[in-house]
Design a protein around this nucleic acid. Structure first.
Lengths: 239, 239
DNA sequence: TCAATAGTGTCTTTTAGACATTATATG
DNA sequence: CATATAATGTCTAAAAGACACTATTGA
């Protein structure tokens, strides 16, 4: 076995390490993913060659920032690495993919202030939108599934929501990410408020913009995990 | 942004990609991890430089096999990649770590038929055992946490168990991996048997070796996810 | 006033948890 | 027989889910 280091046969020549990031947000009730246009006109996830001086997470944040989205108010975690032979024609490349949850930065519908664009995940999957490079479609699929699972047993849904948010905002996040109704709204609200540390009420008056009774505003609590989880409706059987 | 490929500035020189694998098993009611002795006398996780001709998972299986454990009857999944600057002195190296669940291959207490040894995870953590190279202690920590979480919402506990197994065997797996009692044995058995596709009874007569009523034997069912999950006792608060 | 949204109350069903009881083996 | 282990039954408490009701705004 060759453990490398400064001795041994040394590292394989020509192995590249890239970092990609799947930046997800909820806009207009639909899950969106950040895609960016490359210099050659193609589209891809934000990403590129890793610089060994930075950590992998820092690299993901850098590429997201270059595309126009700062991850300061969001959440970044590593997703998976991809090294199938032939996944990048012309070189041996391992892609370390990340996934990030951010609140909608706004700024109109397409633009985000950089070369990146938020695109509805469903449209991309159905072919309405740019075709992504390499295996980036598959990476997006994995990221979405990760997000769906994370919303079940963590409080990370708050990372998609605006800073003071309403229970209805949270409900919309779950609905957009899961692609299905997270059950009865009343029961949902009760579950959220019963889970200690999930949300904390703000002092600010329950302002309102539209119709109906004004809603209370909350901010994210200190809890990171949900005990018990908020499970999405079972996919028919246990499968 | 540099997406690399055959054009552009090309990959950074001197970037190494290694693959590591945390092979876990349950032996004598305790969670064990496979460690292997290197040529220089140090100990580490099975792993080494990645060969671009193979997939990352294949590489993990190869390194496990070289250490003495074939993963055919187990489960392998990717854990995470590690690229902190300075994690490998002398070179920039990204480690793609994997975690595997295997039934106890037996063959006595230490040996497994190769340079590898199964070591109790708790002993390693408390300093009773070899010191592992680089950041491998942290990788083991992450792998154990992954295993604990996976047992909650997947059927992968069966991958730790012998081929026909008893409900008591499964209970022991949960107890060893979680490091705590998974609740009442009777309720545990009911939960396992109610979850469709988790376990299927075997035709074979319920043979017995020791005292007491002989137990029924089961094999792994087709289900991969548990709906609802089998949750471990909450860590005090929701935190 | 009505319509729309937010929030609360309550009832039923399901599940989890504690614990007793029965079944079947060995010594 | 006593004892050990497996398996089942039962009761209670907690949670989930369905759904009615009240509260508060804008039109």
């Amino acid at each position: 076995m060759n453990r490398g280091g400064t001795s041994g046969t040394g590292p394989e020549p020509g192995v590249a390490v890239t970092v990609e990031v799947v930046v997800l947000t909820v806009r207009s009730g639909r899950l969106h993913v950040l895609v960016t246009e490359r210099s050659d006109g193609g589209w891809s996830l934000p990403g590129g060659d890793w610089f060994p001086g930075e950590s992998l997470a820092e690299s993901a944040e850098r590429f997201s920032r270059e595309a126009g989205v700062v991850l300061d108010h969001g959440h970044v975690e590593q997703l998976a690495s991809y090294g199938e032979p032939g996944r990048d024609p012309g070189r041996a490349a391992v892609a370390v993919a990340h996934v990030a949850f951010v609140p909608d930065p706004g700024l109109g519908d397409p633009p985000v202030g950089g070369p990146g664009r938020f695109w509805p995940v469903r449209d991309l999957a159905e072919g309405y939108g740019p075709r992504l490079a390499l295996d980036h479609d598959r990476i997006v699929d994995h990221a979405v599934e990760r997000a769906r699972a994370k919303l079940e047993y963590t409080t990370l849904a708050t990372r998609f929501a605006p800073d003071p948010f309403t229970i209805a905002d949270l409900y919309e996040v779950y609905r957009a990410v899961w692609g299905t109704e997270p059950g009865d709204r009343a029961n949902f609200a009760r579950k959220v408020k019963r889970t200690e540390g999930f949300v904390v009420p703000t002092e600010s008056a329950p302002t309102t913009g539209g119709r109906g009774r004004p809603s209370m505003r909350y901010t994210a609590g200190a809890a990171t995990n949900l005990h018990p989880p908020i499970m999405r409706p079972a996919p028919t059987v246990t499968s």
